[in-house]
């Protein structure tokens, strides 16, 4: 995966600024993400990666700038925002499966409540998705009865059930035991191959090399460097990226 897909950007951030009180967490962020593109966001802890990810579905509001998805500006609040969020899938570090619902119910909740699908349709599709992520046998269990890797794969299925235009992943494997990381990355890699537009905050370089079109390096609330994965990992331009890579590579 080397060539950048063309066309109108699906997600566009322009001049995005955000503060947490005094802290200027996002500073003049400009980022266009094309349809079908996979962007990996990387950077030191506290650099604003999660915040960036969360502004794209407005889990974090921004103070300045503009974010559009498929040409449509993110609404402030209310029903329109909810409708737009339905088109943006999100996978969290801590899975956040609904603890009081079964695996199947977790996956059908959005289609039933937001897309107003019939129960039969929603369940049929949910079972297909659970099969795809390899947790069919667990459909009637509760989240706490599953391993972390299984829960995260269900979380991916839950997001996919909404047929999102773009998927956001915020460190989807960092809460997992090492032996479960690959089962999640494999699902994500196949999604990327199938042309899903993805923004992935991760330090998994293997995944970035395999699946990403671009790596975005953040530091101190800014995008410091943007490059193709191979170029970024072998020949980073900015001193801060060089410093960061030397630290994570030595581990």
């Amino acid at each position: 995966m080397t060539s950048r897909p063309n066309g109108e950007p699906l997600v566009r951030l322009s001049g995005v600024n955000k503060w947490f009180g005094e802290l200027h967490v996002l500073q003049d962020i400009d980022l266009d993400i094309a349809r079908g593109e996979v962007v990996v966001v990387i950077g030191p802890s506290g650099s604003g990666k999660s915040t960036l990810c969360r502004t794209i579905n407005r889990l974090e509001p921004i103070e300045k700038g503009e974010i559009t998805i498929d040409g449509e500006r993110l609404p402030e609040e209310g029903k329109q925002l909810a409708r737009l969020r339905a088109d943006v899938g999100m996978v969290f570090q801590s899975f956040n499966l609904f603890a009081h619902k079964t695996i199947l119910e977790n996956v059908t909740l959005g289609p039933l409540k937001v897309r107003k699908q019939s129960k039969g349709d929603a369940e049929k599709r949910a079972r297909e998705l659970l099969e795809r992520v390899g947790v069919t046998a667990q459909a009637d269990k509760y989240p706490a009865q599953l391993s972390g890797g299984q829960q995260q794969r269900v979380a991916i299925a839950r997001a996919l059930a909404m047929d999102p235009k773009v998927m956001l992943f915020d460190e989807p494997t960092s809460a997992l035991d090492p032996e479960m990381i690959n089962e999640v990355l494999d699902v994500m890699t196949s999604l990327a191959r199938e042309g899903m537009t993805m923004v992935v905050v991760t330090h998994e370089m293997g995944f970035a090399r395999r699946a990403a079109n671009r790596v975005v390096f953040m530091d101190g609330g800014r995008i410091v460097e943007t490059a193709e994965p191979e170029t970024f990992f072998t020949n980073p331009q900015s001193p801060r990226a060089q410093d960061f890579l030397s630290k994570i590579l030595n581990h």
Partner: peptide, 15 residues
Amino acid sequence: GQAEAARALGLDFRQ
């Protein structure tokens, strides 16, 4: 995270 996941799915505040 429970409410965040719900909102991220497109559920409104009441839902």
